[in-house]
Nucleic acid binder design. Structure first.
Lengths: 128, 128
DNA sequence: CAGGGCAGGGATAATTTTTTCCCTGTCCCG
DNA sequence: CGGGACAGGGAAAAAATTATCCCTGCCCTG
């Protein structure tokens, strides 16, 4: 693990939530697990675009946070499945809220971004 | 502005939402503005811990996304106030949900993190 | 035995974000 | 005029995150 040089402020609820869900692929991973795509190799297949190494790192972070946990079957060969902890379950509706807000406003935001770049933003005050 | 080398995937609502709210200090800034701390210098005072330069960068990003806009009063000396756009307003309940989830679970998460580090995590399977 | 799926991680690089430092102006007050 | 509040940004660094490459083992199948 990487040793932080600047301490985090995890006393604020928002900071904690963003920390947990804010990783680049965390939400996607959680969505996989929620849908039952729970084995590492399955998740890797599902997320072709993302390097397996990184998915593992994110999985570990989610595990450290207590959002998911690992079930290791004493089979041969050993099988691993990730599952949501209760707190992980409680995160799902939050993700849904984010997802829904994003879907509702993503066009606006992307358009605004483009307009801002070209100076056409509706909120840009004219300098007269 | 920094020129991205890897394109973003902003078709997913969740990615957009995280992008908007995920910056290190964005939510804090939005909270300031929501509470009426709307002038740059006032925000800087409120967020002593954070360098003014960064706050400005975040403000610009929020502005580009169309979450806030700048009102420049033609006074002398020029006065600036940031305000939430309608879409920015619509983000507030989302932030509240995040904040509330975080506050409810931050102790668990911090504890779990510590336990995980010391091998005491309730979800850690024992290797027998 | 050769090859492949599976779980996992070290070392290192690339990219992105955050931070620091310091500069430009304008204005007001004393 | 000197000092300070105000709005803003360039340049470069440090820090953090994400990405790439390649390795270890175990097992199974052919």
């Amino acid at each position: 693990m990487y040793q932080r040089k600047i301490p985090e402020m995890l006393d604020c609820g928002l900071a904690v939530a963003v920390k947990v869900i804010g990783g680049k692929w965390k939400a996607w991973i959680l969505d996989c697990i929620r849908r039952g795509v729970s084995r590492p190799s399955a998740i890797h297949r599902e997320m072709q675009a993302v390097n397996a190494r990184i998915i593992n790192l994110h999985l570990k972070e989610l595990e450290e946070a207590g959002i998911i946990y690992k079930e290791i079957f004493a089979e041969v060969p050993a099988r691993v499945e990730y599952r949501l902890t209760p707190v992980g379950e409680s995160l799902l509706p939050v993700i849904d809220v984010l997802e829904q807000w994003g879907n509702t406003h993503k066009d606006y935001i992307n358009r605004n971004h483009a307009d801002y770049a070209s100076g056409n933003c509706q909120f840009l005050q004219q300098s007269n």
